[in-house]
Amino acid sequence: MADEKQFCTFYLDNLFFGVEVLTVQEVFRYQEMTTAPLAPPVVKGLINLRGQIITAIDLRKRLELPERPEGKLPMNVVVRTSDGVVSLLVDEIGDVLEAPAEAFERSPDTVNGVTRELIKGVYKLKDSLLLILDTEKASQVETGSARESET
């Protein structure tokens, strides 16, 4: 394994995130989508990506960050997960970065609950911290709450 890994980076509420570049299928601008009522709130809607229907997940909601300001359109980061292809909605796209393995560190225990669960760790870059998102976990959405309990 190479010591350096490449990450596709993006911003969410001034936080700097990255996902491994190999899991990213593509990145595209905001596209109108079909909302899915009854779906968990983090599911923003469904997008037709060249004949393939993919679910868009609002990462701000998923990470329990404050709502995206009105009028600001998110970007789609399409990632491949074991459950299929998912689009992650982010504020802004950053560069593709190479990060040295020795800069990696597990996230400190003091990081807030949800974020810590969804983050594999932190790369200490020169002028910022790159939070590595666990795309598998981020795309897992509880639908149990949406299901009506049978009586």
Binding site: A36, V43, L46, I53, T55, S139, E148
Partner: peptide
């Protein structure tokens, strides 16, 4: 998609 599978109101998408 997996995220919507649990919702009994939907059978699929198109």
């Amino acid at each position: 998609s997996k995220q919507l599978k649990g919702i009994t109101a939907y059978a699929g998408s198109t």
